[in-house]
Computed example of a mutant assay.
Amino acid sequence: MITKTVTAVAGALLMLPLAAAPAGADAAPAAPLTLADAIDQIPSAPESREGYKRSSFKHWVDADGDRCNTRAEVLIAESRVTPTIEARCRVVAGEWYSYYDGVTVDTPGGLDIDHMVPLAEAWDSGASAWTAGRREAYANDLDTPISLVAVTARTNRSKADKDPAGWLPPLADAHCTYIAEWVGTKLRWQLAADDTERAALSDIAEGCGQQEVEYEPAP
Rank of each mutant, 00 (worst) to 15 (best):
M1L: 11
T3R: 15
K4I: 02
K4P: 01
T7R: 15
L14S: 11
P17S: 15
A19K: 12
A21S: 12
A23E: 11
G24Y: 09
A25L: 05
A25M: 07
A27K: 00
A28N: 00
A30V: 05
L33D: 07
T34W: 06
A38V: 02
D40L: 12
S48G: 03
R49M: 09
R54W: 09
R54E: 14
S56A: 15
H59M: 02
H59S: 13
W60E: 04
A63V: 07
N69C: 04
T70F: 05
R71Q: 07
A77T: 08
S79K: 10
V81N: 10
V81R: 15
T84S: 13
I85P: 01
E95V: 00
Y99R: 15
D101N: 14
T104G: 00
D106T: 15
D106P: 00
G109R: 11
G110R: 13
L111W: 09
L111E: 06
D112R: 08
D114K: 10
P118R: 07
S128K: 14
S128F: 13
A129D: 14
W130S: 04
G133C: 00
R135L: 07
E136A: 12
D143V: 01
P145N: 12
I146T: 07
A153S: 13
A153L: 02
D161E: 11
K162L: 14
D163S: 12
A165H: 10
L168D: 05
L171D: 12
D173V: 10
D173G: 15
A174I: 06
H175A: 11
C176L: 06
T177D: 09
E181R: 15
W182D: 04
G184K: 06
T185Q: 05
T185L: 02
R188V: 01
A192E: 03
A192H: 09
A192N: 07
A193E: 04
D194P: 01
D194R: 03
D194W: 04
T196S: 06
T196Q: 10
E197Y: 04
A199Q: 12
A200R: 02
L201H: 04
D203R: 13
G207V: 02
G209N: 11
G209S: 10
V213S: 11
V213F: 07
E214N: 05
E214I: 06
Y215F: 05
Y215R: 04
Y215E: 05
E216L: 08
E216K: 07
E216N: 00
A218K: 05
A218M: 08
